[in-house]
Write a protein that binds this DNA or RNA. Structure first.
Lengths: 117, 117
DNA sequence: TCCACCTGTAATTCAAATCTGACAGGTGTC
DNA sequence: GACACCTGTCAGATTTGAATTACAGGTGGA
C-alpha cells in the first residue's frame, strides 16, 4: 500500500475499527456472499449493512459486484480483498508528513500526491 | 501482543483511527510532554485532550505519569509506548474466535481469557 | 495578594455515526 | 395474482463520540 496520507490511513483504521464491520470481515473471510445472505447471517438490517459495506469498500477492504444469478435475479456479491494493515510510529509520522506535503502543494496549486520538491 | 479479543483489537484500532489522536501520537513520537504543553502544540483544549489521552491509554498506546517538577509543580507527563499494530484476515478471525471462546466460557461460569478446553 | 503556571472534572452543547422502518422496483415460481 | 426472493435508497430516531465552557484546587514567584 506504499505511502498513505493520514486520510487514507484513517479510512482504513476506522473502517476495520468497528465491531459490526469486524464481523463482516470475518464472515466474508470464508467466501463471497450476496448482501441479503450476509445480512441474515449477521442479523443486521440490509440498509445498515449497505452502509458498513460502503465504508469497507471505500477503504479498499472489500469489493462488490452486481451479478446475475442463473435464474436471472440480480445479486450483489461482496468479497474480501487481501489486506495487511501495519501501523507503527513510522507509519503515523509518514502519513502526517504526507499531509503537510499535500497541504503545501495545494497552497502552491500543485496538489499532486507524492510529489515532493 | 499475542492474542487479542475483538474488544482489545477494536480499542486499539478505534484509538488510533481518529485524526486528532493520530496527531497526538505524532507529537508524542518526538518525546514525552506534559498535558498543557501538548494541548498548546496541537491547539486543542485541555479537557478534550484528556479525553483522547484516556482513550489512547486504555488502548495501551500511551502512558501517563504524574510527576513533580523541580519547582514543585504537579505535571502529568505522557509518553508514547512502543506499538506495532498488524492486522490481517487472520488477526480478525482469531479475535472473533477468542470472543466465542470467552462467551462460551462465561456461560459455563469460567470466564478466564485464553483458556480453552 | 495577585499572577502565571499546572491538574482534574462536571455540565452541556454539537456533530457525526449508527440503526430502524418504510418505500419502490425487479425477477421467477406456484 | 400472490408470493418469495433480490437490489437500492430515503427519512428519521437514536446513540455515541467529540468538543466547549466553566469551575475548584494546587504551587511558586513578584
Amino acid at each position: 500500500m506504499s505511502v498513505l496520507t493520514s486520510e487514507e490511513l484513517l479510512a482504513l483504521l476506522a473502517a476495520v475499527g468497528h465491531a459490526q464491520r469486524l464481523r463482516i470481515v470475518g464472515e466474508l473471510a470464508q467466501g463471497r456472499l450476496h448482501v441479503s445472505e450476509l445480512a441474515r447471517r449477521l442479523g443486521l438490517s440490509r440498509p445498515l449493512l449497505y452502509m458498513h459495506l460502503e465504508r469497507l469498500e471505500k477503504a479498499g477492504l472489500v469489493a462488490g459486484a452486481l451479478e446475475l444469478s442463473a435464474d436471472g435475479k440480480a445479486m450483489k456479491f461482496f468479497e474480501l480483498l487481501p489486506f495487511d494493515i501495519h501501523v507503527t510510529v513510522d507509519t503515523v509520522l509518514t502519513a502526517l508528513r504526507e499531509d503537510q506535503a499535500l497541504a503545501a502543494g495545494a497552497e502552491r496549486g500543485t496538489a499532486e500526491k507524492g510529489k515532493r520538491t
